[in-house]
Amino acid sequence: MSRISLTEKVHQSLLPRFRSGSIAIDATAGNGFDTLFLASRTSESGSVFAFDIQQQAIETTRKRLDEAGLLDRTMLICDGHENMAEHIPAPLHGNVDMVLFNLGYLPKADKSVITHTSTTLQALNCALRLLSDAGYISILAYPGHPGGREETEAVKLWAKSLPETSFNICIHKPEHSGSSSPEWIEITSVTG
């Protein structure tokens, strides 16, 4: 039996969350795989907003979406994820269904350009303000690169500090994993 990747597990967990008109954010577009997944599952009445600080990531994502015929339902933004609220139209604030973070660096690119704890925490706080009452945040954190362990631990502490009356938190660490293995943090709004 083949093992599925952590990214595939994230995608599987998202499937039942899509509805007509879903609004999704890919906070770290990278090579565009999460953005493509979101756009392929979002109806024509929905929207996907994808952020990355590297123009290379935006262009790779644009090409991937264009080839799949899904560019029309996606807005690509070359800016830090901590600034996402500035780019999301005001009527969508409080109506975002899901936000995905895939922390670390852009594969096959400059590995010195990484997500940073301070801006990641700002982005997570921003994502909370954008979420709908039944919204969902998924964070894949990678402790294996310089600064990655500190960022992963800070994100887990941040998640654990959220009020239990408002959010369900689940932290997954793959079985048989080492200290540099990725961790998956899920945050689900508790419908009030």
Rank of each mutant, 00 (worst) to 15 (best):
R73V: 13
I114N: 03
D26S: 11
G21K: 13
D79C: 02
T7P: 14
R129S: 13
C126R: 14
V10F: 06
T165Q: 15
Q122Y: 06
N125A: 12
I58P: 01
Y136G: 03
H93P: 04
Y142Q: 00
E153P: 08
I58T: 07
T188Q: 13
V155C: 13
R149G: 08
D97K: 04
P174N: 06
P182H: 04
I139P: 03
G32R: 15
S45V: 06
K108G: 08
D26W: 14
T120G: 12
A68K: 13
S40R: 06
S181D: 08
T42D: 04
S179Y: 04
E59P: 01
P174T: 04
G69K: 06
S161Q: 14
G135Q: 00
T188K: 11
D34C: 09
Q54R: 11
D97E: 05
E59R: 04
R73M: 06
D72G: 13
V155H: 00
P89N: 04
P89D: 01
L15D: 04
T165W: 04
E186F: 06
T61P: 02
I187G: 02
I114S: 03
G104Y: 07
S161P: 07
N95G: 11
V48Q: 02
M75I: 06
Q12V: 13
S22I: 08
T74D: 01
H172S: 08
A29E: 12
P182R: 05
A159P: 00
V99F: 02
T74R: 11
E151N: 02
L36W: 07
T117H: 08
I137C: 05
I137A: 00
R62L: 01
K63W: 06
T35H: 08
T35G: 10
G21D: 07
Q12W: 15
V190L: 11
L106D: 03
T115K: 05
H11P: 12
G144D: 03
K173F: 09
R3Q: 14
R62E: 03
G178W: 07
R64W: 01
D110H: 07
K111D: 06
L92E: 10
I58V: 11
A85R: 05
D66S: 12
R41E: 02
P143F: 05
